[in-house]
């Protein structure tokens, strides 16, 4: 009965928490987006923008949760896949584009 070797630097845990923090930042951005979209009179474009931002936030959550599960499952986690990194970045950029559309 030997415990699985743990990294004394707790790197996987720190990485998991970094994903959590980043998800939290995305949540704040999405909430600000929803506030902007539904501010004042509710228009069809506003509702659409709000829905888009919510969907993007869900997409980000999905990427983050997948990565967190992968980090927890393996004893020696594999490096982040470029597709996941690109997915997270594309969600971020799309939120910014929604923001630009809502602001103008």
């Amino acid at each position: 009965m030997t415990e699985p070797a743990r990294d004394p630097g707790l790197q996987p845990e720190r990485t998991r928490l970094a994903w959590r923090r980043t998800t939290l930042s995305a949540t704040v951005a999405a909430i600000l987006a929803a506030k902007t979209a539904l501010h004042g009179s509710t228009s069809a474009a506003g509702v659409l923008g709000c829905a888009a931002c919510c969907a993007l936030w869900l997409g980000f959550l999905l990427v983050a949760n997948r990565r967190i599960r992968a980090l927890a499952a393996a004893d020696r986690p594999t490096a982040l896949a470029p597709r996941q990194a690109t997915g997270a970045v594309l969600c971020t950029i799309a939120i910014a584009l929604c923001a630009a559309a809502l602001v103008v």
Partner: peptide, 12 residues
């Protein structure tokens, strides 16, 4: 990425 999200939040 968090920095980017903070900038986007700042824009909002």
């Amino acid at each position: 990425l968090r920095t980017a999200l903070a900038l986007i939040g700042g824009g909002f």
